[in-house]
């Protein structure tokens, strides 16, 4: 289908119990798509299936482009500096010298990392800086589809705003389609144009909501209403979202 970057069709996945049931969704070109749902409903599993890190038991995933993923935990190698972490994927692709340095510099600046940040080991860097380094590590390979798992979790307000601005800058500069999984509804809805709401485990798509053209309050009200509707039909569920 023209303009389509990713299509998930009737995907089922179980581990010791069913996690995903009959999930179908799509991601359009240059779109920022959100995935929301109660805690532990299987959003990360769905993202990992999109990234090819898990195989669905049934169903099909079609990916039309290179995929980059940023994990919920930064997963930076602690014995390497942030610069070395960002350069890893380029090194594996055989890039050396000026070309490698140029690319690392370009994407580090894009996400807002300074020269002094890049010299740090992950343990010495703040949560926001580490998250940006993980983002730069994925971006430096120039993916066409970017998957972000809880990018704002554990960050303070300043770091969240800074990361949000970095993402906006990236989307304005590069042709990138993005899927974001986040519990931070406000952050998510400031960035996405369309949201899939998932049910508690085993997750199904409960609703697809387009929030394009709405102000933030209306977006929040609309998505929260959908979530409350799902949770009210699920005995024992708690309010899991901020």
């Amino acid at each position: 289908m023209a303009g389509m970057m990713l299509r998930v069709s009737s995907v089922h996945k179980s581990f010791s119990e069913p996690v995903l049931t009959d999930i179908s969704l799509h991601l359009k070109e240059r779109e920022v798509l959100g995935l929301v749902g109660p805690n532990g409903c299987g959003k990360t599993t769905l993202l990992r299936i999109m990234a090819g890190l898990e195989t669905p038991d049934r169903g099909d995933v079609k990916v039309m482009g290179k995929v980059g993923i940023v994990f919920q935990e930064d997963r930076l190698l602690p014995w390497k500096t942030l610069w070395e972490n960002i350069a890893l994927g380029l090194k594996y692709r055989g890039l050396r010298g000026e070309e490698l340095i140029g690319k690392v510099k370009e994407y580090s600046e894009m996400v807002g990392l300074s020269k002094s940040d890049l010299a740090l080991h992950p343990r010495k860097a703040s949560g926001g800086t580490r998250r940006k380094a993980a983002l730069a590590r994925a971006l430096v390979l120039e993916p066409e589809i970017l998957l972000l798992d809880e990018p704002f979790t554990g960050l303070d307000v300043k770091a969240r705003i800074s990361l949000r601005e970095a993402l906006r800058l990236i989307w304005s500069e590069y042709e990138l389609s993005t899927v974001i999984v986040s519990h931070q509804l406000e952050e998510l809805l400031l960035l996405t144009g369309r949201v899939y709401v998932l049910t508690p485990k085993p997750a199904r798509i409960a609703e697809e909501i387009s929030v394009e053209g709405m102000d933030l309050k209306s977006r929040l009200d609309r998505v929260k209403e959908a979530l409350y509707h799902i949770l009210s039909r699920t005995p024992g569920s708690e309010e899991p979202l901020s």
């Binding site: 935990e73 890893l88 692709r93």
Partner: peptide
């Protein structure tokens, strides 16, 4: 295993997994 998966996601080969992680 999280670090191994992270470097695999950016194209690491098994030898890279050994020497890098």
């Amino acid at each position: 295993p999280g670090l191994l998966e992270a470097i695999r996601a950016v194209g690491a080969k098994p030898s890279d997994e050994f020497f890098e992680v």
